[in-house]
Design a protein around this nucleic acid. Structure first.
Lengths: 145, 145
DNA sequence: CCTTCTTTCTTCATATGCGTATTATAGTGC
DNA sequence: GCACTATAATACGCATATGAAGAAAGAAGG
């Protein structure tokens, strides 16, 4: 991404997403997180602290090879650990560590704060309109999967 | 990116941008282009077919090391060539080739078509509202550069 | 001229995404 | 129990982004 071209709805959208992403990422960096890392921790917390990698991939809406690497990095950070799955020896669980739980709590707060900061530029009316419009745009699947 | 989390303006925005990006990319692939490649060709055409790499980086709003690699790929595709800059021997020009010009024309058409398809889901009122809101969100700089 | 500062591009390490093998294990049918 | 097929994770190659460090060339001042 990072297009910086005016006069195109697409470029404007990508540019805004990029700006928002960078804004939030820069704040998350203070606790050693990135948006993908926080997203993974979110899913683990939602799931009760552990998930098979394939499940994690599905809930993050990304491919499994991606999660393999993301979990590698989270493991290096000490935020998750891999553990064998008692129900299926093919499978491995990503398990949240104490540090991971802590990072998740801090990250969630930071994300929430940053989001309030960003979206405070919008009136309540703008915000609901924004949500509607975004929902409509999300109908453009067909990525040739 | 690719978060797939509901109940967050940020996640909704990133998700929509991702969907739109994927939609357009899948169509551009037919002519051997990606969004970053098309963006670079756009800048070259705007500039009259050539630019020093540093200039290109600035106009793409990305770092120079990125452009070095992007131009490597465009050169491998035969869409641009590197040429010495007559005014400064430190500098190298990215010069559009004939194939590059052709790819740009086709890519621009594809992008425009895809964009119409996507944004046709929005009424004229939605569209202008969308543009306004996006502009407001773009005010969130301060990426800690 | 020579030293020093700046600019331009490249190279390298890293983070993130994708898709395609490859390997180990599971499950199914015979 | 064996052969086949399906599934889980990984390894590998590639595209795209960043930033830090280096090389080469220009500019400025003595």
């Amino acid at each position: 991404m990072t297009l910086a071209a005016p006069s195109s709805g697409m470029f404007a959208l990508l540019h805004a997403a990029n700006a928002v992403e960078g804004f939030v990422e820069s704040r998350l960096a203070a606790v050693g997180l990135s948006i993908p890392k926080l997203a993974a921790l979110n899913r683990l917390v939602e799931a009760g602290d552990s998930l098979p990698l394939g499940q994690l991939a599905e809930r993050l809406a990304c491919v499994k090879s991606n999660v393999t690497q993301l979990v590698d990095r989270l493991e290096a950070d000490g935020f998750v650990e891999r553990a064998p799955d008692p129900n299926d020896r093919r499978s491995r669980l990503a398990v949240l560590t104490d540090r991971g739980r802590k990072a998740h709590t801090e990250g969630a707060r930071i994300q929430s704060d940053a989001e309030h900061q960003i979206f405070s530029a919008l009136s309540a009316d703008d915000a609901s309109r924004f949500a509607e419009i975004i929902a409509k745009l999300n109908g453009c699947r067909s990525k040739g999967h």
